[in-house]
Design a protein around this nucleic acid. Sequence first.
DNA 1: GAATGTGAAGGTTTTCACAGCA
DNA 2: TGCTGTGAAAACCTTCACATTC
Lengths: 228, 228
Amino acid sequence: MESIESDTDLAGKIEKRISESTIRRLSLYLRALSLLDKKGVKTISSKELASREKLTPAQVRKDLSFFGSFGTRGLGYPVSELRSEIAGILGINRIWKVALFGVGNIGSAMVSYKEFARQGFQIVKLFDNDQRKIGSNHKGIIVSDVSNLEPEIKEAGIEIAIIGVPATVAQYIVDDIVAAGIKAILNFAPINLKVPSDVYLRNENMSMELEYLSFAMVNNHSEKKTKP
Amino acid sequence: MESIESDTDLAGKIEKRISESTIRRLSLYLRALSLLDKKGVKTISSKELASREKLTPAQVRKDLSFFGSFGTRGLGYPVSELRSEIAGILGINRIWKVALFGVGNIGSAMVSYKEFARQGFQIVKLFDNDQRKIGSNHKGIIVSDVSNLEPEIKEAGIEIAIIGVPATVAQYIVDDIVAAGIKAILNFAPINLKVPSDVYLRNENMSMELEYLSFAMVNNHSEKKTKP
DNA sequence: GAATGTGAAGGTTTTCACAGCA
DNA sequence: TGCTGTGAAAACCTTCACATTC
């Protein structure tokens, strides 16, 4: 019952499995290109782009080559076009509606984080279980009761959830969210969440980065390359 | 002027270069082991530990084997001992003093983030450039003027800085921080900071994770393995 | 001349598979 | 028997180097 050519995506563009590293670097390229575009720069070579992100020119070219030929030999890449190509590849040439669960410290920070909106991630719903928070207004959004999430999520057309609730309750919330049909979750709770295989889950683990710094300091660990 | 055996650390334990992935997984093991320890679990097999973090048993054993032999054949690993071994390897069996720059949304969230303190990262100084914030009290810490950071950092014995200031000013602040002698920086600003090669820098890029989710959804990108 | 696009080479990380030990 | 520790194999990712194009 396997489909033929199961490694080909719907648009027929991606033939190979793209590595996580490549996708993460696309985010970096996108950020750099947006800045260059704003500055009015018209073209950029793989060499220049690489140097801005502490990568190699070959890496940049290889990453882009998985998706097409966007450059001109002898010249480089057209900044503005490449920017929108990458936005298209990453799927952020559109608005994604996001719901945030847990209006605590991290949650509040996320609501105010301008960078999300700039990338097309629009936080349109806030949920909490604290009666004192429910009904209150955060940056123009009224906090809803988490116990009634399904109709609100469906009505608002939410596709992505950000989990900012404590680790102790995160799994329960996620079970409800998954039941409500959400297919992508960004988790800030320091816990390993269980989700069905058709739900995309990413974990943001801030302690991990500090622990990496600690390890590096204690062991004089010179990095060969900082991964994106 | 190069030292002999420059790839050997001070304690003489680490012979090879340890990969970033291994270090990041150690953080995951540590978190899982802390939980198990609290629950009173005495031993755990690589298989069990792996399943909790969606990794393979061989991966767990290999990672640990870089640092020593902590297990017992036929039995598994002693939870509590392994936990402190890993804490030692990561260098968090001690208190690290941390300063936070920028008491905005992200900064405020970091101050209140219990997980940091739990791992030994103690935020002891807050800095901002906003006169309305300077002198105010956040969770028991008085916000200092960022223009006078050097004496305060040295006096408090700060070794790690967290950057929560806007991207536009981040590089200036970082230059001052580096001049003040700080050797490790966790950066939340969406910008590529330049630091001398003896300063450790890690970037926390939350948009990147959302973009990854977006990419996965748009391309039906089933992950072979979620990297830590 | 300058810079892309890309097979092939090289390097690194993960997984396998089994010897070795409790 | 059960599970670790680890060389060797496999898979994966990055870099090289050059043909190709503007």
